[in-house]
């Protein structure tokens, strides 16, 4: 006895099994990201005044990445619609773009990560703070592209208009401690890396599934087109969810 309703819809629910499954899974994903967002809110409202970073991330890149994901979303839904209209060639084309967009997103994200990991906050022995990217390392001094401020608080709000970055040479003997802008740097960085990292894992997972359906998995189209269309639909639902999470992550992390 085969498992019923793997392809056709069950009459009383109007759904095939995998669709019920993916929506249940997405419900649990909502709770997962919901918990992370509530962590964000709790930690943010609890942060001391003036110490929540503003403008630390590259807004143009974030905007571009948002558009990249939106584009991948429309190609995903078009790929599914193409299958519904029995246009297999168009399906291949649209999902090729989806995969390309996924790669673009991840590349931009890696560039942003790299930028943060090479960014240093340096506490000097005179109590001032140097901040910027290291461009030269010598035995007795380093050169950063950045600035020196008297108060650490000045590093937190980058929306100020008159910030000027220039090459600053710092003697190693002046340095008390230095720290990269990694997840350990402060609560904001911790949230940024954890939330976007987990999101990136979802992008990778979704891209692997879509890549499989685009490549070797697409053989199923010849033997069982309806089942294949269902698989594309279900993987598409996951992909849209990943896009949806990013729609919230972008303003929360980049703009606010």
């Amino acid at each position: 006895m085969d498992i019923p309703y793997t392809v056709e819809a069950r009459p009383d629910t109007g759904l095939y099994n995998a669709k019920v499954g993916i929506w249940l899974f997405l419900a649990s994903e909502v709770m997962l990201f919901g918990a992370l967002f509530s962590a964000y809110i709790l930690l943010r409202v609890g942060a001391p005044a003036g110490y929540w970073p503003e403008g630390w991330l590259n807004v143009p890149l974030g905007t571009l990445n948002t558009m990249v994901l939106i584009t991948s979303s429309i190609t995903t839904v078009m790929a599914w619609a193409s299958l519904k209209m029995h246009q297999f060639g168009r399906f291949k084309l649209f999902h090729a773009i989806t995969l390309l967009m996924a790669l673009t997103f991840l590349s931009i994200k890696s560039y942003e990560y790299h930028d943060k990991f090479t960014h240093f906050e340096i506490l000097l022995k005179d109590g001032r703070f140097a901040d910027g990217h290291i461009i030269e390392r010598a035995p007795d001094h380093i050169v950063i592209h950045g600035r020196i401020v008297n108060d650490e608080k000045a590093l937190y709000n980058l929306h100020e208009k008159h910030i000027q970055l220039k090459e600053v040479t710092i003697q190693r003997s002046q340095i008390k401690s230095m720290e990269r802008y990694g997840p350990w740097h402060n609560t904001y960085c911790a949230l940024y890396f954890t939330l976007t990292g987990l999101h990136a894992l979802h992008v990778i997972g979704g891209a692997i599934v879509i890549g499989f359906l685009w490549g070797p998995g697409s053989k199923l189209w010849e033997t069982d087109p309806e089942r294949f269309t269902n698989r594309v639909e279900v993987s598409g639902l996951f992909w849209h969810f990943v896009d949806l999470v990013w729609i919230f992550l972008f303003p929360v992390l980049y703009l606010l």
Partner: peptide, 8 residues
């Protein structure tokens, strides 16, 4: 988000 959820 609603647009994505409702239509896509």
């Amino acid at each position: 988000g609603s647009l994505v959820a409702c239509y896509f």
